[in-house]
Design a protein around this nucleic acid. Structure first.
Length: 454
RNA sequence: GUGCCUAUAGCUCAGUUGGUUAGAGCAUCGGAUUGUGGUUCCGAGGGUCGUGGGUUCAAAUCCCAUUAGGCACCCCA
């Protein structure tokens, strides 16, 4: 048999039972918190029309979209010229009209617009599904990964932002991860761009600023210059990048710098309101205003968030922000939304490296019955039914094979009790219970056994 | 999209300056033990050395190409 080795695509993973138990542990906590804050679940398809997805994530995002080849004769819309002059984007549009979703926010915006008549606003939903990105995988980066999104759409209130931070705080507290919640506001960044006279280069500026603590001031300036910012603009930016000190000192300085920018002052106001609330709410995790937080996604317009684990160097494990006009693109203007997304896979990796998962005790059957043959099978099934009805997970080894094999199975599966019912036990209406940990073996009645295990 | 590294049994890896029939541990299966696992002992199966080409009397080993995987950058959860 010259069978080829099976494998899965780069950047995707299988999950074993143990891994799934742990992943579900994370999902359950997140879901529970989301629902306790009044958010309800929805799901959307794995694939969307490409027109829904393209242009929402910036140039980089478009490149990372997985495109789905049209079914049937996917070349029928193409012509010879398409292949002679290789304009890949144009060609791609002709042979592919669907793509795998890149995040959950854009499909959500599409959902809201499409179902606007059936939705009561403000609409609070959560969504836990995989997303796909055609990125080169590396540590903490996958091509298929789960996001856990909570968004509220149709409300401008900053209470939403505050509550989202509370959700972040509660989730990570429950998971046992110490985090730093970084908060900023895109309006402040816009204001800065405006003040230094480069309003249209907002994105480039923010992306560069974002790297400040990673590559340092000098490199940031280099990058800004490379992006075409004027010398004067970069000069003007320096005092802002050098803003140091605690909030109390930073804020007045920032206010002074932004005083001529309407949007900048708006951002300051918003941030102030949020931070004042948060101060009163005694969060368990650290949080702070971080001027260098920018976030790459194009659609954010107001508050932005990012969460990193404190005890380990890893990318961000949660991020989000306010988007004022995402639904506008789909024909429903002036509806603002705000939301965050937990990266389940990175949360998993962080918890795994920090050993934060609880001991798995209930992941397997509590009891296994050894299979001695046809007659015993019949007898045992009745006993097992009773055990299961008592709420104890139990199984009968399905085949009457060598005892050694059956015991080994129980051992490998970490089943704590093995029950043996053969001729003698059936006659006396008793069961023999082997405690797999101690190796001790006792004869007892079914009733007594159930009581003991419970 | 750019750069670097790796590829030998199901898994993790050894394999000398190129030299007989390519090894180990784990896992699997069988036996010691037909109603007793985890420990122990004995045994077995499992490989076109990622693929294709080249150099050589001789290639897992050297060279080229190709494919796949990993890491870093970019960007991001």
């Amino acid at each position: 048999m010259a069978d080829q080795k099976p494998s899965i695509p780069k950047g995707t993973r299988d999950f074993s039972p143990v891994e799934m138990m742990r992943r579900n542990f994370i999902f359950d906590i997140i879901k529970e918190v989301f629902q306790r804050y009044g958010y309800l679940p929805i799901e959307t398809p794995a694939m969307e029309n490409l027109s829904t997805l393209t242009g929402k994530y910036g140039e980089e995002g478009d490149r990372l979209l997985f495109k789905i080849l049209n079914s049937g004769d996917y070349l029928k819309k193409t012509s010879i010229e398409d292949f002679e002059s290789p304009n890949l984007n144009k060609l791609a549009a002709k042979i592919s009209e669907k793509g795998l979703r890149y995040d959950l926010t854009v499909p959500f915006a599409r959902y809201v617009v499409q179902n606007r008549n059936d939705i009561t606003f403000p609409f609070k939903r959560y969504q836990i599904q995989p997303v796909w990105r055609a990125d080169r995988p590396q540590k903490g980066r996958y091509r298929e990964f789960y996001q856990c999104d909570v968004d509220v759409i149709g409300s401008n209130s900053l209470i939403n932002e505050v509550e989202l931070v509370l959700i972040i705080d509660e989730v990570f507290d429950k998971l046992g991860i110490n985090t730093i919640i970084k908060i900023n506001n895109r309006k402040i960044l816009s204001g800065i761009a405006e003040v230094i006279g480069e309003a249209d280069k907002m994105i480039d500026i923010t992306v560069a600023i974002d790297k400040l603590d990673k590559i340092g001031l000098e490199k940031v300036n280099e990058e800004l210059e490379a992006k075409g910012l004027s010398k004067q603009a970069i000069e003007k930016l320096q005092p802002i990048l050098n803003l140091e000190g605690i909030l109390k000192e930073k804020f007045p300085k920032l206010k002074e710098i932004l005083k001529n920018s309407k949007i900048g002052m708006e951002g300051i106001e918003e941030l102030m309101t949020m931070l004042t609330h948060l101060k009163d709410l005694n969060l368990k995790n650290k949080w702070r205003f971080d001027l260098t937080l920018a976030r790459g996604l194009n659609y954010y317009t107001g508050a932005i968030f990012e969460v990193v684990a404190k005890d380990i160097k890893f990318g961000s494990i949660c991020g989000g922000g306010r988007y004022d006009d995402l639904t506008g693109i789909f024909g429903l203007p002036e509806v603002s939304g705000v939301g965050i997304s937990f990266g389940a896979d990175r949360v998993y990796d962080v918890m795994n490296e920090l050993n934060l998962f609880p001991e798995e005790s209930s992941i397997t059957s509590k009891v296994m019955f050894v299979n001695f043959g046809k007659e015993e099978e019949k007898f045992c099934l009745k006993l097992i039914k009773e055990i299961r009805q008592a709420g104890i997970s139990a199984e009968l080894y399905p085949d009457s094979v060598k005892m050694k094999k059956q015991m080994k199975y129980a051992n490998n599966k970490n089943i704590p009790y093995v029950v043996l019912v053969g001729e003698n036990e059936m006659k006396n209406n008793l069961i023999t219970v082997k405690d797999m940990q101690s190796g001790e073996q006792t004869e007892t009645s079914l009733k007594e056994f159930i009581e003991k295990v419970l």
